[in-house]
Amino acid sequence: MDLFEYQGKQYFARFGIPVSAGGVADTVEEAVAAAEAAGYPVVVKAQVQVGGRGKAGGVKLANDAEEVRLHAGNILGLDIKGHLVRRLWVEHATDIAEEYYASFTLDRGAKAHLAMVSAKGGVEIETVAEEDPGAIARLHVDPAAGFSEAQARRLVEEAGLPDAAREGAVAILQQLFRCYEEGDADLVEINPLVLTTEGRVHALDAKVTLDDNAAFRHPEWDEYRDIDEFDERERLARSKGLQYVGLDGEVGIIANGAGLAMSTCDVVNQVGGSPANFLDIGGGANAEVMANALEVINSDPKVKAIFINIFGGITRGEEVAKGIVTALGRVTIEAPIVIRLDGTNAEEGREILKGVESDRLISQPTMLDAARKAVSLAGGAAK
């Protein structure tokens, strides 16, 4: 789950990371009130999860209430790379002496956390990595050992941060790692991390991606979910607790497991079709979950065929089949359905499905056969 900047700063503040004083605003008058509370001058910033806000006119400096009204009115409703601005963050403006970069994420290949620090902040880190890779200090952190003050100092020194910023940067790196580890994040990034003209170091921006797998430990994360950012299909899926990503194709996909769902999308593409979505129902292929999944798929008018791809492991095949049959009795489906059922007790499951098979509900023995049939029913020329 990606947080907006203001949410990321709120998350940082929980772990003692210094951020600029500011407030959230959904209207022009709320923006003025937030500016008065933060103290002039302020920066009015569009809250969208996309880069390039400044170049698109989504970040403006304001010296008084009149300028806040002008900028807030112009930014609210602005389209920035397909993202409509509905919310603003208004914060006290910072006098910047220098800009740096700091982040923690997971390096799966190394099976360790990866810390990165650079004296070249304020620009895309990908650009720095491409044009001047030596400007980024990197350090792998053993998850069992944690991140020490000595490691923080080593990073800051290798990155070439000036003496005036080192103590503040070391302290923030330790706080940032706590935010990353204890806060169950996949990524925490400060760009820029700034040294002010007064000699203070603090986070001027915040990028935080939370690990959805840890959501059961964090009921407070519900406040971060902005369902307005999703399209209608994704809003419906989220309301039903489903892992769903909308795509632009004609073959609706339901699979149990993220890996299988991705493979199903791939095989549909392989045989000449185009997936309409990624939908992972996990291990819970019971009647309620299946009915919810079919309802979401059915809400997409572009779907011409549905491919249900289930591999039974702990979930048994006959239970999956019963769930599908029950779900079909609860949801009126517009598109034909192709089912591939394999794994534990798959034969028993297929026998159950035979009782409801028709030209609108077709069982296929393999994933490839099922993909070809689904693509054909969707009107494509299956390979």
Rank of each mutant, 00 (worst) to 15 (best):
L3I: 11
L3S: 10
G16Y: 03
I17K: 09
P18H: 10
G22T: 10
V24L: 15
A25R: 06
V28Q: 01
V28P: 02
V32W: 00
A35D: 05
A35Y: 00
E36K: 14
A37D: 14
G39Y: 07
Y40S: 09
V43K: 04
K45T: 12
Q47G: 08
V50L: 04
G52Y: 02
R53S: 03
A56G: 02
K60L: 03
K60G: 04
K60D: 01
A62Q: 02
R69H: 05
H71M: 02
G73C: 09
N74F: 05
I75L: 02
K81Q: 13
H83Q: 15
V85H: 09
H92E: 13
A93V: 12
D95C: 07
A102F: 02
L106D: 01
D107I: 09
D107R: 05
R108Q: 14
M116R: 08
M116F: 04
E124P: 10
T127V: 15
E130G: 13
P133H: 02
G134P: 04
R138C: 01
H140V: 12
P143A: 03
P143V: 08
A144S: 11
A144R: 12
A145C: 07
A145E: 14
G146A: 07
E149W: 06
Q151H: 05
V156D: 00
D163R: 13
D163W: 05
A165H: 03
E167H: 07
G168E: 03
L173E: 00
F177D: 06
E182W: 00
G183Q: 09
D184T: 12
V188K: 08
I190P: 01
V194G: 03
L195S: 07
T197V: 13
R200F: 11
V201P: 05
D205K: 03
A206V: 10
V208P: 00
D212F: 06
I227N: 04
D228L: 11
E229W: 02
A237W: 01
A237Y: 02
D248C: 06
V251Q: 04
I253C: 15
I254Q: 05
A258G: 15
L260D: 01
A261Q: 10
M262P: 00
D266I: 11
V267Y: 03
G272Y: 01
G273A: 14
N277D: 06
F278V: 13
L279Y: 03
D280V: 12
G282V: 09
G283F: 00
A287S: 14
A287K: 11
E288H: 10
A291Y: 01
E295C: 08
E295M: 13
S299K: 08
A305S: 15
F307V: 12
G313L: 09
T315P: 02
G317V: 09
E318I: 13
E319T: 14
V320R: 09
I324Y: 00
V325M: 09
V325T: 13
T326D: 15
G329C: 09
R330P: 00
V331H: 09
V331L: 12
I333M: 13
R340D: 04
G343S: 05
A346Q: 07
R350K: 15
E351Q: 15
L353Q: 02
V356N: 02
E357P: 00
S363H: 07
T366Y: 02
T366P: 00
G379I: 08
